[in-house]
Design a protein around this nucleic acid. Structure first.
Lengths: 215, 215
DNA sequence: GATAAAATCAGCATTTTCCCGAAGCGGGGT
DNA sequence: ACCCCGCTTCGGGAAAATGCTGATTTTATC
């Protein structure tokens, strides 16, 4: 059965490794969601409280989080705040039983992926979760690319970084040499090393990397 | 008094030309909003119905729209849909009297700027409107830049466009010549014309323009 | 068919970039 | 003190790009 789940997940086109976390104090509701999602090939991990989830949460898992709003102890919005504070990129789908427009608006404006009311249909949840996972997968790719760019930027020396900035600014080696008060030859060396360290072979790729990483 | 309004608006640091549109069938509510916003130096234009607003709306004014949800004839969400269909970039702030989480979530996910419930405080509205205008101003700058880039891209010939694509891909003139099966000299001509038409003088600027415009 | 616009190519001088090599300099470790 | 390594600094020659003048062919448009 476990194997089947994996196969189904792959057949559904989901990137392997994505898990759906559920945090809800209502046992029936939680089990219902677990059953629904697992029967559709998702890997699910359910928790009855925010603390339990935080204890397991190891930084930045792939997937999304179905989060109940009203819970004893730490509430849904509080957990969401905490995740935001910890720079989590895990998409959060709020689930609430008591319609509260202000809370929904606040949550969404703070970056929640969605906000659904009970009762909800199976199709609704599945659709939202799938959409969320798809987006998360893309987002993840972007984050990885950005992280890689940041890492590479980090291993540039001061001089190389200065040269890079001027390259991005569109200056010629001659102008860069003038600005930094060094010879053109030296600029060329730094430039070559920048290209090497950034893992690109053309100026176009270099600019693309830097500009893309800024957004 | 009109002059004072203008001065106040400038002193408040708002980009000139921004107007706040209000569409609400409730006369008292509408007048109240008009008074509140005008007394804070905003230029306001109020309408009692969606049709009236659409008749005046000329494509893409600067500012934002305070839109009541429930109205006879065309409703708030319907007007919002229509604006979206017409590729409007005018930020929409929904105002509702009857809390409806699903509607709020839908509206926000479709790109509404905010969704506030009656009754609301003056401070709340002012804060939201100001935030909205600030964002809109920045967005506008980006849109202008993008529009300019698109316009320039539009006046490139087919060949120039092909060459541009290969330049962006980071290829050398020699490689471009090979790909398009033309001589290097010709590539150089196209390349120069691309730079000229795109209004840039360095490869870095060119790449930045293109990449920025894609987002 | 005339006219204009686009696409094609060449030569030549200049500038810029790329690749290989090399040397001074300063900190860390043995 | 000595050596190694990374950072920074250069030079020379090859390759590539740029700017300019000029030209022919193809295509679009009226």
């Amino acid at each position: 059965m476990d194997e089947t789940v994996g196969i189904v997940a792959r057949e559904a086109g989901k990137s392997f490794g994505q898990q759906i976390f559920i945090v809800d104090d209502d046992d029936a509701q939680r089990d219902s969601l677990v059953w629904l999602l697992e029967s559709h090939g998702h890997v699910v991990r359910a928790f009855s409280g925010a603390r339990d989830f935080l204890a397991v949460w190891n930084g930045n898992p792939a997937g999304c989080l179905l989060l109940d709003v009203r819970m004893p102890g730490m509430s849904g919005p509080e957990l969401f705040e905490e995740l935001t504070r910890r720079c989590s990129a895990l998409p959060v789908i709020f689930i609430t039983g008591h319609g509260d427009v202000a809370m929904a608006v606040t949550a969404l404006k703070k970056g929640a992926a969605d906000f659904i009311e009970k009762p909800f249909s199976s199709d609704e949840v599945l659709k939202i979760v799938n959409h969320c996972l798809t987006r998360e997968s893309e987002e993840r790719a972007h984050r990885c690319a950005r992280a890689d760019t940041a890492r590479r930027l980090g291993q540039l020396t001061r001089r190389e970084r200065q040269v890079l900035d001027l390259i991005i600014a569109g200056k010629l080696n001659k102008q860069i040499a003038g600005d930094l008060d060094i010879s053109i030859k030296t600029v060329e060396v730094h430039r070559a090393r920048v290209m090497e360290k950034m893992g690109v072979s053309s100026l176009a790729s270099l600019i693309r990397r830097i500009v893309s990483a800024r957004l």
